[in-house]
Amino acid sequence: MLRVREGDETSFALLLEKHRNSVIHFLYRMVQNQAIAEELAQEVFLRVYRSRETYEPTAKFTTWLFRITTHLALNHVRDRRKDKLHDSIDEKIEDGAPRQLPTREANVEERLLRDARLGEVRQAIEELPEKQRGAVLMHKYQDMEYSQIAAILGCSESAVKSLLFRAYESLRSSLRQFSPGGSGLKAS
């Protein structure tokens, strides 16, 4: 990014190549719509490019990048939450790409079960408050530590832990029905 700041256009292309997928994948899981995710990702990298001359390496580049990304994602989710009434689960799934599962599953029944669990988890993610959603996605898919998530969300580490604990508890509740023990157990 420092080379981009100095006007090296090739470095911006390399930076894009390195971080493009992680940004888009995060945005996709936040908004659950590929077209919107790509549009938001374009805006992220436009802002990175516009800010290149004033960029200061005071934190990790990914922290800065994901701060921009999360800011745009949270704004979009909040705006969409105000606008939409009720979307069906089917519509949400249709907005995204066709569901993909790892090819290791040969058993149809197991594949159907995983498919159902995936649908439940996606629905549960969709219903999470936006900050909890962002925290879970960064924790799970970006392997970020609590401190980095805190820097991105602009809150304390203990607040991040609280966000994650509540988010994962919601996700576990959504999958209780699939556990061998049944759905009767509650968290103490």
């Binding site: 292309a13 590929q34 066709p98 023990g181």
Partner: peptide
């Protein structure tokens, strides 16, 4: 033990959630 089992199920389901492939002209548009 139940919490661990459920959490592993959540992790597995989240791991199954693969994003779609990127549009070919993403970089060009940018």
């Amino acid at each position: 033990r139940t919490m661990v089992e459920l959490q592993k199920m959540v992790d597995e389901s989240l791991g199954d959630w693969l994003p779609p492939t990127l549009s070919e002209n993403f970089d060009q548009k940018l």
